[in-house]
Every structure is written in structure tokens, then in C-alpha cells.
Design a protein around this nucleic acid. Structure first.
Length: 423
RNA sequence: GCGGCUGUGGCGAAGUGGUUAACGCAUCGGAUUGUGGCUCCGACACGCGUGGGUUCGAUUCCCACCAGUCGCCCCA
């Protein structure tokens, strides 16, 4: 058997790649409007960057990274997410000193996680993400969320749900953590083994459990929102108020917990509510990560961002039956008959392209009939037919493909004639 | 990492323990000598995911592996 594509990866062929181009273009155009600038960082980074930022105990770091040792003995990792590298670059390139603040960045590119492939989950997937560094204004939280929501809605998605929560600051979180442990410990035996493990490690995760979601202790569990300190609570309220002002509807879900350790305060997800969408409904996840820049060795700098997967966006578009790609067509297909005409068509084709037309010819030495078929397949608006008759008479036949009407044009006037035709 | 289902030509899809592996779409050729989209005719799997086993004989039965898919976990 020949070599096949690695598991969990995909080839994107012509026919599909156009959708990607439209999406990428939309992302760039939107970022321009919101004034986010593109940043490109390496595909691999030092392994420590991810263990320190994403969190040494997270699944991503513990079992999903593509880590390898290079010839110099360095441990490197194919990036599993984008935020860490952006923050690293921010610190390393001293972007806190840039004249324009806050620093608003976006990135688009492949990420790698060694997971079992599933609908909406790949080992290499493309994320579009945004990061704002240097502002702790709740208005920027709302801006980041609105950028993500706009991105989806301008591409045509309707069945979206924004879920938001506040994880509070360190003080709020540890108070909540204590309360959770007190709440669950006496009856933890009634929960699944995962939850039992979570009790000490990360009790917040119990709230996320799907198996035990109907347990009575779940409903009565202490909510993070009741443990937010004054400052955290006011911050969250302000974010929600701004969202209201932007006309963005949301659902506050006190059980929303993000899987990466660096999040605090605002955490949000955008999910698809389209019928028949797979089990993985999260299209976009993001939140605030004050403290991460310091963790990476930079000055105290607040940050917030989101990341979304293009693959999942495409799946959501499909689920909502949204067609992005318009019919592909070309201006002209040159049908050449006979050797002399074929030779001539090489030059003519070149001239047409220089003049700005999309044009094509036959390269398989096909008969006239097959050449017309090829013209059809390419959705040619016109066919230019050149053969012995035409060449001798210094003429070319122009045929409008949808009506079938034909005109003979002097060869030396063809390009000018064609320009008028097409406009 | 765990579990369910699936794996036949470029695509979709039937089928059988034993002569030539249906059919549809696509492709190519012809009917139509220089004109496409329609129609008709013809061609197109030395092979049934890979490897092993059972058998006189396997694409069909068994096992393993690989891959896809769905779900769990987790996440984008």
C-alpha cells in the first residue's frame, strides 16, 4: 500500500479551498475594521512555553502535544494553541513598548494536538484567533466577543449561542474552590471516578461533568458568581452591560469552565445550535488571561483573546446549509483546430492573460467536441475558435457559450473586441 | 486513552464460500468529416482497506492492524 495522509489531517483540494479563501479573507477584512494586526509566529516553540502557559496538568500538555527533540537536544513542540506564542512574542519583542496600545493582534494558522479524530476534531486544525494585550477595560472584552460574533454572522451563521461566565480573580477562585470541596466531599462517592479525581485537583471541573449532571448536589453547588469579590463582580457586570449595548445576546453559565489554566475573569464560548450538528458544538472559545504575560517573563500586562477553528466553522456553515462559493467561471476558452492554430493559440492565450482575462486552452490535443466540453466544464463565458479557415482569413470566431451565437472578428482586432464584450 | 459502527472502481452503491464482481454518476471513444450542455451506443475493478488464518477454494468466515465515522474524555 502506498503512503497515506497522517491520521487526523486533511488535504484541502480545489473546490473546497475556495471556501477557506473566503473565510480567510473575511477574517482579515474584519480585523482591519476592528484594527487588529496580523502576527505570525513559528509553528513550533520550546516545550516549556506550553507547559508554563497552558498548564502542566492540563490534558493538552499531558497527553496531546507533538513534542520532539531536535538535533541540538532541545525539546520542541508543535504549537497546540496560539495564545502562548503570541504572548511569548509580545514579551520577547517588547511590544509593551510599542506606541499603539493596547496591542491588538490576530493570527491564523495550523495547530496540532494528538487526539482521537472525531467530527470537528483533527490532529492538525486551523485556528483564527485574536489577542489584546495591555488593556483591562471590560469594553475590550466586549469588543473581542463582538468581533467573533460578527465574523460568524457576516459569513451567514444564524444559529449561534454565546455562553459567558466569569472565573473571577485568584482570590475569588480560591474562595470558590474551597466552597466546592466542602460541598462535594461528604458525598463524592456518589459521583463518577473522573469527578472523584477532580475533587482535589480541579473541583470546578466537576460542574462540567456530563455523567453526573443530574445529581442533586450539582444544582445546589456553590456558583462561582456568588464567590466573586467586589472587583471581579463589577468587572463582569460591566462586560455584560457592554454586550447589551452592542446588542449581543448571551447566556450566563456559571458552569462554563475553560480547559486551559491561564484563564481568569471573562470566559466565553460560542456554540452552534444548528440541527444535526455533531457532539462537539463549540465553535469558538476565549477569555481573559491577566497574569499570563508575567508568567512568561514580561511586565504585568492584562490580556484577552479567543480562538476559533475554521474546520468547525465550515461544519457549522454546512449544518446551516450556507453556500459560500459562487459559481466559478472563466472569460474565454480557446478552441484550436489543427497544428498551426494550436501553435497560434499559445500566443493568443498569453496575450489574453496579459490583458487581464481569465483564459484557458486545451493541452491534451483533444478534438473540437472535447474542447467544447472542456470549455463547458470551466464555465467559459466565451469560446474563441481558431482553425484553418480563420487563420487563412485572418479571423477568429467568437462564440457566446450560453446563447451559442457566433461572430467572426478580424484577428488583429480580437482583443479590443473581446474587452468590449466582457465589460 | 476507551467503546459502537463501517471499509467493494474517481464518487455513490449492490452482491456471493467456487466459471466473466450488478447498477448509477463521472471519465474516455463513437453516432455528429470544425462546435458544448440533450439523446443513444460502446469502453472502463487482473480487484473487493492491509496483513495473517480457516478452507480444495475467500472479496465473502475468523483474528490482528490501519483508516473513516459516531460517542466518551477533552477541546477549537
Amino acid at each position: 500500500m502506498s503512503i497515506s495522509i497522517p491520521r487526523g489531517t486533511r488535504d484541502i483540494l480545489p473546490g473546497e479551498v475556495e471556501k477557506w479563501q473566503i473565510i480567510e479573507e473575511k477574517a482579515r477584512e474584519l480585523c482591519e475594521r476592528y484594527q487588529y494586526k496580523e502576527i505570525r509566529t513559528p509553528i513550533f516553540e520550546q516545550t516549556d512555553l506550553f507547559s508554563r502557559s497552558v498548564g502542566a496538568t492540563t490534558d493538552i500538555v499531558q497527553k496531546e502535544m507533538y513534542t520532539f527533540t531536535d538535533r541540538g537536544g532541545r525539546s520542541l513542540t508543535l504549537r497546540p494553541e496560539g495564545t502562548a506564542a503570541v504572548v511569548r512574542a509580545f514579551v520577547e519583542q517588547k511590544m509593551h513598548g510599542l506606541p499603539v496600545q493596547p496591542v491588538k493582534l490576530y493570527y491564523m494558522g495550523p495547530m496540532f494536538r494528538y487526539e482521537r479524530p472525531q467530527a470537528g476534531r483533527y490532529r492538525q486544525f486551523v485556528q483564527f484567533g485574536v489577542e489584546v494585550l495591555g488593556s483591562a477595560d471590560p469594553a475590550i472584552d466586549a469588543e473581542v466577543i463582538s468581533l467573533a460574533m460578527n465574523f460568524y454572522s457576516e459569513l451567514g451563521l444564524k444559529k449561534l449561542k454565546l455562553v459567558i461566565n466569569s472565573l473571577g480573580d485568584l482570590e475569588s477562585r480560591s474562595a470558590h474552590r474551597e466552597a466546592l470541596i466542602r460541598h462535594f466531599r461528604p458525598r463524592i462517592g456518589e459521583f463518577c471516578s473522573d469527578c472523584q479525581n477532580r475533587l482535589e485537583k480541579n473541583p470546578m471541573r466537576i460542574l462540567d461533568c456530563k455523567k453526573d449532571r443530574d445529581h442533586e448536589l450539582m444544582k445546589s453547588a456553590p456558583s462561582i458568581l456568588d464567590y466573586l469579590n467586589e472587583e471581579s463582580r463589577r468587572y463582569f457586570e460591566k462586560v455584560l452591560k457592554y454586550l447589551d449595548e452592542l446588542g449581543i445576546s448571551y447566556e450566563v453559565d456559571p458552569n462554563l469552565v475553560r480547559g486551559l489554566d491561564y484563564y481568569n475573569h471573562t470566559a466565553f464560548e460560542i456554540m452552534s445550535e444548528a440541527e444535526g450538528f455533531g457532539a462537539i458544538t463549540t465553535l469558538c472559545g476565549g477569555g481573559r488571561y491577566n497574569g499570563l504575560v508575567e508568567e512568561i517573563g514580561g511586565p504585568e500586562t492584562p490580556g484577552i483573546g479567543f480562538a476559533l477553528s475554521i474546520e468547525r466553522l465550515l461544519a457549522a456553515l454546512e449544518a446551516e446549509n450556507i453556500q459560500l462559493v459562487k459559481k466559478q467561471e472563466i472569460d474565454c476558452f480557446i478552441v484550436a483546430l489543427g497544428e498551426k492554430a494550436r501553435d497560434y493559440s499559445v500566443r493568443l492565450l498569453h496575450q489574453m492573460r496579459l490583458a487581464g482575462f481569465s483564459a484557458e486552452k486545451d493541452y491534451l490535443n483533444r478534438k473540437i467536441k472535447a474542447q467544447f466540453k472542456a470549455a463547458d466544464r470551466l464555465n467559459a463565458k466565451y469560446a474563441a475558435i481558431i482553425g484553418d479557415h480563420e487563420l487563412e482569413a485572418n479571423k477568429i470566431t467568437v462564440k457566446k457559450m450560453d446563447t451559442g451565437e457566433q461572430t467572426e472578428v478580424p484577428l488583429d482586432q480580437f482583443l479590443d473586441y473581446f474587452k468590449k464584450l466582457v465589460e
